[in-house]
Amino acid sequence: MRLVEVIVLISTVLAVALLITVGFEHLVPSERVRPVAEFYLNATYNQYELRNYTAMSPEAVTAIVWDFRGLDTLFETSVFYLALIAGLALTRGLLLERAEKSGHGLSIIVRTVTRITAPMIVAVGASIGLHGHLTPGGGFQGGSVIAVLPMVVIVVFSASFLVIKGVTTTKLLVVRSLGLTGIGLTAIAVFLVGITLHMPAYVFQNMAKPDAQISMPYSVAGALISGTLWFFNIFEMFAVAAGFSIAFIALMLARTLESSRGE
């Protein structure tokens, strides 16, 4: 038995070593950029040579996510929304009963530190979201950072503390819906302008195209906003922050109520 274990262990180690050795050249990124990547890198912020393709954002990932393949991202966000609705539907009976008193939470030291770090978490999240078109990050990342706050509050204080303070799943669902509506409106903004002005325009259009000359402004008062990318990031930030908060509250409140019933 002992021998078998040793043999299994050694062969596993050897297999992993072999895999790493064989796959090494694929693990290390080559210096040569593939044609697709080269196109995106050239087009992402290029006002002059590729002006019919550019997204006017120096952050290629955000440009791909919200411009080059924006429709895909819209459906991803919608799927997340539907999953949340389904989750809330599961817990609806539990969430109707409100917990009466807020729990004692962790020690005074942890609570005081949380009081100071709470606004800092939101500031960092907002910075990530608002600079998504300039630096790595974006709406989803910023919203996720903001959603750390309700999670910390739930652990340090309690889930009912949030509800007592007025952060209810209903209100968060309204924020989430407003965020999604904003994303939808941003997607058809240029198209709507085109209809009003009787000019050709596309759904999900950002910068001007050869056959559709309407364009989102890529800068406002000298500050680069990359057209639709800025709006997508902001609305996504609200939608994701509210979405994750709903999930955390629903999970923790349901558990709290279940355990208090059991007593």
Partner: peptide
């Protein structure tokens, strides 16, 4: 407190950073 964290985290003080 929030503004200090925002600016330090962003790492720049252009007009856009100050307004947002």
């Amino acid at each position: 407190l929030a503004f200090t964290v925002y600016v330090v985290y962003t790492g720049s003080i252009s007009g856009y950073d100050i307004v947002t």
